[in-house]
Computed example of a mutant assay.
Amino acid sequence: MTDSDITGEKPQIPERILVAAARVMEREGFANASLRQIAEEAGMTKAGLYYHVASKETLLYALHERFAIKLRDSAQRISESDAAPTDKLRALIVETVQTAGVYQSEGTVFLREYAHLTGEMAVTVGKGRDQFRTDFETVIKEGMDSGEFRSGDAHLDALAILGACNFTAFWFDPEGAMKIEQIADAFADRLLYGMRTPGNDKGEKA
């Protein structure tokens, strides 16, 4: 099933429309944002916008897919690799935090407004989010089984780590003292420190 099967739209929504939608929804909120405002932000007519999208909900879904496809593919590749669990979890954390920084507006809008999705779009997004969390859980469980990570509830650990990583979108300052890559490394160091069994220094950076 493709995005166009779900949304009823053409497969590709122009970049300027997605950027404009993210800006307007971040500023106004989903409920208050209008297609007219988004069209004006994109420098086009409302009729021109309707050629590409039929609703705000379609745009909200597209904003999610803009970063989620990349994350899902990376998470699956990492979780299925032959690397050690500690290395896998570090890679998952770094990828998630960096994506939250690169797609900051899209992430902020989606995390704040995803409840507005309905029907097949809501179902598809929900399944994707469940699979992404499961990839984290799988890696954490592997680490527990191998003795690299403390024993515990892999589901709860995955939720805690994902909450910390995803929330980066809300507070990251692109003009701040730390680049998103530095923040991602710092998160990985701190979160892995809490996961590792005592005396286990795997995943420590030189």
Rank of each mutant, 00 (worst) to 15 (best):
H116Y: 15
K127I: 09
A84P: 05
A84W: 02
V123D: 14
M144T: 00
V94S: 00
E95F: 09
T134A: 15
K127F: 10
T99M: 06
P85V: 05
M144N: 00
R133H: 06
K88D: 06
E148T: 11
T86R: 01
T99H: 02
G119C: 07
A115G: 12
G147Y: 02
A154W: 01
L162T: 13
S146V: 03
A160Y: 10
E113I: 11
T138F: 02
D135T: 07
G126V: 03
G143D: 00
I161H: 04
T124V: 12
G107H: 03
M144S: 04
E137I: 10
G126P: 03
K127P: 01
G152C: 04
A122Y: 04
S146M: 04
L159A: 14
D145F: 01
A83E: 14
D145H: 07
T99Y: 01
R129P: 03
D82H: 13
A115V: 11
I93K: 03
A158Q: 05
I93G: 05
R133F: 02
L159M: 15
D135A: 11
D145A: 12
V97Y: 02
E95M: 13
S81H: 07
A122M: 06
M121S: 11
H116F: 14
G147N: 03
V94N: 00
A160D: 10
Q104T: 08
A122Q: 10
I93V: 15
H155P: 02
D153T: 11
R150N: 10
D87C: 04
A160Q: 13
T86W: 00
V123C: 06
E148M: 04
T96S: 06
A115M: 08
E106S: 11
T124S: 15
F110M: 05
H116Q: 15
Y114P: 00
F132E: 07
T124Q: 11
F132N: 10
A158S: 15
A100I: 07
F132W: 15
I140W: 00
S105F: 07
T108C: 05
I93Y: 01
D157L: 10
L92M: 09
E106Y: 03
K88V: 11
S151R: 12
R129E: 14
D130I: 09
G143P: 00
I161A: 09
R112Q: 12
E148I: 06
V123T: 14
T86N: 03
D145I: 09
V102L: 10
T96P: 00
R90I: 04
K88G: 10
F132K: 04
L159D: 14
S105A: 15
F110Y: 13
V97I: 09
D157E: 14
T138G: 06
F149H: 09
E120W: 08
G101V: 09
G143A: 03
Q104P: 04
G152P: 08
I161S: 05
F149W: 07
R129Q: 14
F110V: 14
M144V: 05
A160R: 12
T118K: 15
E113M: 10
G119E: 02
Q98P: 03
L89R: 01
T124Y: 07
L162D: 12
A122F: 05
M144G: 06
G147R: 00
D157I: 13
A158N: 07
G119P: 06
G107C: 10
A115C: 07
G152V: 08
Q98K: 13
E106I: 00
F136S: 04
A158E: 07
R133A: 11
D153V: 11
D135F: 09
L111S: 10
V94P: 02
T124M: 08
T86I: 12
